[in-house]
Amino acid sequence: MEIGFGKTERDRLNEELLQKAMAGNRRALAKLLSAVEEGDVNAETLGLKNHLDDGTIIGVTGAPGVGKSCLIEKLLSHWSNQGLKVGVIAVDPSSPLSGGALLGDRIRMESADSNPNVFVRSFATRNQPGGLPVAVGLASNLMRNSGYDIVLIETVGAGQAEIRIVSFADRVVLIESPSRGDLIQAEKAGMMELADLIIVNKSDLEGAERAASEIQTALEISGKPPPVLLASAKNGEGIEEFASKLKSLPVKSGAEMARARERLLAAWDSALLSRDDISDIINGLIKEDSNAEDWVKENLRWSNG
């Protein structure tokens, strides 16, 4: 329903929630994040300050089991002890069949349900392209606007195809671990080339140093490699260095093209996926309905030149 000045009732409700969230109300922030996830927030009318390029929204990606959540927990306590407030958006995959999801990243973050300086929110991918829901960009900016000094976005990164994270985070950390496949993994194009920092976790294990130097060697061949550091979420080794390195990294260190490209694609996906008639179009395509096929031809025509 429209109520003057082009603002809907929903916009007004969101503004009210934002005011409360900015005053430190967790429930209001949680409700607003749900609205973002459902596509019910108009970022323009809400008037958020944009934090996308100030180096405070950090992507943490890496293959399953390398220790992303455990390392994040270490960062949370480190920063929280310094008096900083940290938000985390933990992304886990949705089932392509049922649409459901099991979100379990919190289990490994002890601060998640007890530290007042920490706000952890789980997001399901809801089967969106690039391994990341488009709402993540707005959600992380919302956390920054609500008093969280740093926002970490943890993603399911196979490390190769899922590079959408570079469009939402201004710095991206890739987590690796020793004895995970062979060197070829590092040579495959993808996340490894786009990362601003690479952390080899589990430095307490044998082979960690060798893994780090192998990664470094592989990346040196193709130009300027990002720093490669060793750390251990188990015994806390290297965490301080990891945290201070994150702060000193130049924002947008290279990969501008890939970032811009991913941002464009994310915007395109968002525009397509937020159409009210998207499920009608998909159902039409399944039934080989000519109207749906015409729509695709009409609207995607320019993409084929």
Partner: peptide, 29 residues
């Protein structure tokens, strides 16, 4: 089972206090 029913399920892990559980419900909406 609830995930397979199409729901988004957040599991807290073992041995939580009532306060920790409520905090999770709150933050996860």
């Amino acid at each position: 089972a609830l995930r397979d029913g199409g729901h988004e399920v957040i599991y807290t892990g073992l041995r939580r206090t009532p306060e920790q559980i409520v905090r999770t419900v709150l933050d996860e909406d």
